[in-house]
């Protein structure tokens, strides 16, 4: 038996919103420790990894590990039937899970709705992602990162990210001209959500597709801050941390000529 009840149901809506543009089908891997998801986009150059700890649910019950194969478009349609303040419970039979039960309860418990989502077999590649010491780790307001991606898309479909000890610079070059945004580290003790920090082992300069990066910024509502981790010749890591876990996006850099 699998059961996971999330008091803050709106979080599940936001999470789905942050994944569904990148991936259409995905396995939710359920275990004693929580729920995780790893999936790549069609071209296999971007990867999303989601982790939700069991402690974030009340209650959480999972007797043995199993996977829920879900079409995210279908799940999204059903999730639209949940109110923003609803408590959401996910239920499935772990021995023969061919459907996922979703229970939406309003705060006064007067209205309960129940939906069953048909599950599917999804045969997906699963990559092992090692813990990495990145050359550069940047924390910045998530809304700022979203704005930079949106603004620079006016100029080009690619952005070069340069990180040095005292600034992170985003540069775009296109047919109409060029644009860049530079941010310096700031620490605002009274407003930590607005601070920018740079941890640097060595300077990095990497180019990425803005289409993917702006897709990743769908995670913005999940966290005030975003973490960007860069190393030469490695995929960029974009992480949004939540109380209950995290969502991590990886993107292969543009290489060659």
């Amino acid at each position: 038996m699998f059961e996971a009840r999330l008091t803050q149901g709106a979080l599940l809506k936001r999470l789905l919103d942050s994944v569904k543009e990148l991936v259409t089908d995905a396995n939710f891997d359920c275990s004693e420790t929580g729920i995780s998801l790893q999936a790549m986009d069609n071209s296999h150059v971007a990867l999303v990894s989601l982790s939700l700890r069991a402690e974030g649910f009340n209650p959480y019950r999972c007797d043995r590990g199993f996977s829920l194969g879900v079409n995210l478009n279908s799940l999204n349609k059903i999730m639209k039937c949940a109110g923003n303040e609803d408590v959401i419970t996910l239920k499935a039979d772990d021995s023969s899970a061919d459907s996922l039960c979703l229970l939406f309860e309003n705060s006064s418990n007067e209205r309960v709705s129940e939906y069953e989502l048909k599950l599917m077999d999804i045969d997906q590649e699963h990559l092992s992602i090692p813990e990495t010491d990145y050359d550069a780790t940047v924390m910045m307001p998530s809304a700022e990162f979203q704005r930079i991606c949106r603004d620079l898309m006016v100029v080009s479909e690619s952005v070069t990210i340069d990180v040095s000890k005292d600034e992170i610079k985003f540069t775009a070059e296109g047919e109409l001209g060029t644009g860049n945004v530079k941010l310096k580290p700031t620490s605002t003790i009274d407003k930590p959500e607005e601070s920018i920090t740079i941890e640097l082992g060595q300077t990095v300069s990497l180019q990425f597709s803005l289409k993917y990066l702006s897709n990743f910024t769908r995670g913005t509502p999940l966290s005030d801050q975003v973490m960007l981790c860069l190393s030469d010749n490695m995929p960029l890591l974009v992480e949004y941390k939540m109380d209950i876990g995290y969502i991590r996006y990886y993107l292969a850099p543009k290489v060659g000529d």
């Binding site: 150059v45 990559l127 092992s128 995929p235 990886y250 993107l251 290489v255």
Partner: peptide, 14 residues
């Protein structure tokens, strides 16, 4: 033009 390499070239298969 510059292009992206598939993720499986960076991370190994489980």
């Amino acid at each position: 033009t510059r292009s992206q390499i598939r993720m499986s070239r960076y991370f190994s298969n489980n």
